[in-house]
Design a protein around this nucleic acid. Sequence first.
DNA 1: TTAGGGTTAG
Length: 727
Amino acid sequence: MFSTLFSIYSRKSLKALIRKSVTLLEFYTNERLINHGNALHCHLIKMGLSSQKYIAVKLLIMYLDSRKSFEIDQMLKEFNGFNLVVQNCLITANLQWGNVIDACRLFDEMPERNEVSWTSLISGLLKHGNVNEAMVYFERNPFSNVFTWTATINGLVQNRLSFQAMRLCKKMLQSGVLPNDITFTTIIRACVELSDLGLGKSVLCLIVKAGFENNVCVSNSLVTLFLRLGEIDSARKTFDRMEEKDVVSWTTILDMYVEMGDLREARRMFDEMPERNEVTWSAIIARFSQSGNAEEAVKLFQQMVRHSFKPNVSCYSSVIRALATLEALQAGMNIHAHILKIGMEINVFVGSSLIDLYCKCGNTKDGRLVFDEIPEKNVVCWNSMVSGYGFNAQLEKATELFNQIPHKNNISWNSLIAGHLGIENFNEALQVFDEMILSGEQPNKSTFSSILKTCASLASLERGKYAHTKALKLGFQHDIFVGTALVDMYAKSGSIESSRKIFKRMPTKNEVVWTAMIQGLSENGFAEESLRLFEEMEKKSSIAPNELILLSVLFACSHCGLVDKGLSYFNSMEKVYGIRPNERHYTSVVDMLSRSGRLFEAEEFIKSMPLEPEANAWAALLSGCKTFGNETLAGRVAEKLSGIVETKPGGYVLLSNIYASEGRWEDVMSTRNLMNQKGIKKSGGCSWIELRNQVHLFYSQDETHTQSNEIYWVLQLFNSEIQSHLT
DNA sequence: TTAGGGTTAG
């Protein structure tokens, strides 16, 4: 492993060996590869180099960073007392561990302090959010140089206090301290944070005046500034004008294409880049993974390894995310094993992706093991586990864990709501939403998307309207997810006019919202309008019809009696739209033919089907037979249907309903008995009413409502009242 | 003291 080290050593170039060791130790610390760090430490001891000043400091930092107390003590002994450098390291470590008071005490007790001590303390305090304390020390700092100024300005930017950062920068210029390239990159970031293009341009003037316009870092920051503020042309021009470009410049511009949604161009650029490093690989893998292109992300990861690049933490978390999307459990487990083998600490990013992977593959137990192993969990880890339980219908565990989250955010709430929605616990989903509002947590677009879906499932117009008002107040009405959910909710709740209005006002329309509107119109009896909208979509948008849209189109044709039009759409499904019809499309055609009395054709159509027909297809034909009085065919179809129900439990319900509609009560009873014998449970008929913002559900033969007794008592009272009026 | 990349919900 350390062959390069030895070869350098054999050349007796001690300086190079020290430099290389320092670089390696820094890498192992940053990447949390403590096993590797330990191994290197052993080699350095053998070579008698572990006490060398620069190396010892890096070793100490590595152990402090990973909180290895035994090794820390050993290292402190090596130093033979506490010098300034060690003290500075200890202050930084204490700040990292959140021991602000200890860090300040150590600093205050130091007999002498250099400018590094001051800068470390101030920037460390800022890094960990202790802005006020940092500013007190900043005022006391006797060293007024560009390092301290820049570190403090940077700390303020990191704390999202960019306005204060810019004010401090002005003070620095007034005090006569000249900014350097790092100061400029820092204040450009502040401009990005403030979304202030004008300010950015003023900074650009300063950069030119100070002669930093050809500095690679500064130029890279400018490219990012223009990109983030939507000035794509300026970003590209700045990039093209750069005399010297490095791997960061290329990675930044690569990201530009991804953000513009042009993954192909991004890929082309990536393939042609003169230089790549692990961050470039990490960026492209992450971007493909985020854009839902998981397979490509995994391929890129394999390619990266083949090119002998060492994947870093970011790469691992991105590729695991991609594998979770693909539900590739085995591959994910291999990567997990590999990470453990190389001794990479499971940090929050890798940990959260791993939890997600295991849970998406149905293995919440292993997900939980990973969760329990993460030493310092952040809210994302908690949310991943809550949503993992929710995804696997383990709502009790999800709720239990949710209640333990130390600092919840809106995604925590959304995860629990989504869990309830997933198992159709609609009332609970609404209840969690109410609690979320009461807790003061701000719902976001995802919250509304889920809640509106819940309202749509309950056909609860009142709750839906309430959610709509809240979404309007927060300005989410133009969001595509919220808009789609609103169109669907109003359509499902029977308020199709509201759906129409929202659909019309939506600035951008995607496939899903077109589907919702076409389906909504079709299902609300506006068949002709639905077909007109479908034709409009074909003409005016670039959206290709999908399975669901075509099903709605067939449904609409069936309900307007446009049989030939419907048949022509059905026949063009595969040829024109490239969609293979499924059972539901076939059933829709059978329904269409049966409703118009083309019974023989319908029967022939079923016989010619390449797929096993749904019981519903036969039922549709049977219903046609009854409408048009074709008893011979009805007999044949009923026989067929009773044959099908043997294999498909859903068919029993259908059959018993058909018997019931014909008044054949004995047959109904025998079908029901058969169902009981076979242990088939029919999902009970369910009705509901909405009272004072609460939806009350009632199931047939199942008195689970909490006030069931009272309700039945009142019902009986009404019945006797009615009876007394009748007699 | 600095520029580019990472995890969760819809």
